[in-house]
Design a protein around this nucleic acid. Structure first.
Lengths: 182, 182
DNA sequence: TTGAAAACTGGCCGATCGGTCAGTCAGGAT
DNA sequence: ATCCTGACTGACCGATCGGCCAGTTTTCAA
């Protein structure tokens, strides 16, 4: 936004911004297009002018986090297993802490996430990441990795009062206790 | 309920049974009273004859788990801290595994749980249990207890393919790694 | 057998949802 | 001055929701 932002992008961005806040506060299902429009200072029709539907708004909200996760997975894919595990643990903690708003949103959407092709890549990347984080093919360690991710995501929910550093430190301790480093 | 069940209780029980299955499969919000009625083999009006509203149906679904949790908290309250922690860990694993259907339902309701006085006691008991499970006033251990509970609940979600024993074993290992026993 | 209470139901209501559509309007190009 | 187009909107739609109520059927004690 150096000089001017085309009206198009400005409105679109504001819609995503407000949608994120509303999804985070009240959940995806409980937030109506009208709510988003009102918060963004435009009409419901405008929201649907910029996005093909409500799921498309959700996809736009999740997009930055999904992109970071995709990058993480791609980076881990090119490393030997032990290093991939270390990288995944470190970077996923940062990712979850930085995008904790998205984590909030995601939790609410999980029950109906299967029917949303818009977020399918994110789910797939999440699955791949779990394997990297386990650092082993041992089913037990795989399960513990899932356990760790669930705990971590849960910890990042509704934790606006905590500083990023505190949250990072906590997750680091928890994951170190929980996961056997390869 | 030795020999026969009065029609009243029979219908009521069937409604709760089917509501549980539907909430678990599709979530609370996505399940309509009509869905529940159809599954239970009665009319929507009958559901509302037995329950004051949709939240009351939810409360009835959660009730058995809520009762067990209340019992757990009451038992832990009368023990010294170290024993309370051991008891809490052991019994909560069993509770979560046995009531994993309820855990599923609960996850979906969390975003709107604040506005539901019907389930407030359950939430309060959950909070108390977290403190017992931490086994210490150290904020770090308290946070780790929350972390552990989140991971455990997440592990119990959508895990119908796993046997109870496998699930219990996994949770036991995870909690032992994660929590410093007092 | 009967009559009242309990159990149950069909039909309806107002509200709200996501989404569509015809049309308004500002402003740049010609 | 004219036209075009991207941005935007108000009005409306069909569907579905939770909930209500008058009325019917079933049950069961007297």
């Amino acid at each position: 936004m150096a000089v001017i932002t085309p009206a198009r992008e400005r409105t679109r961005r504001e819609i995503v911004r407000q949608a994120m806040a509303l999804f985070q506060a009240g959940g995806y299902n409980a937030t109506s297009l009208q709510d988003i429009a009102t918060a963004a200072g435009c009409s419901k029709a405008t929201v649907l002018y910029h996005f093909s539907g409500k799921p498309a708004v959700l996809a736009a909200v999740l997009e930055p986090a999904a992109a970071d996760l995709a990058e993480l997975v791609a980076a881990a894919a090119e490393l030997p297993r032990a290093e991939a595990q270390d990288l995944t643990i470190q970077r996923f903690i940062n990712l979850a802490v930085e995008h904790r708003g998205v984590v909030d949103v995601l939790q609410d959407v999980i029950p109906v996430i299967e029917q949303m092709p818009e977020v399918a890549p994110l789910v797939a990347d999440g699955l791949r990441m779990t394997q990297y984080m386990a650092g082993s093919d041992d089913p037990l360690e795989q399960d513990l990795a899932k356990f760790a991710i669930n705990g971590l995501l849960g910890e990042c929910r509704h934790s606006d009062e905590r500083t990023d550093d505190d949250l990072r430190r906590l997750c680091d301790i928890a994951l170190r206790r929980l996961l056997r480093r390869a």
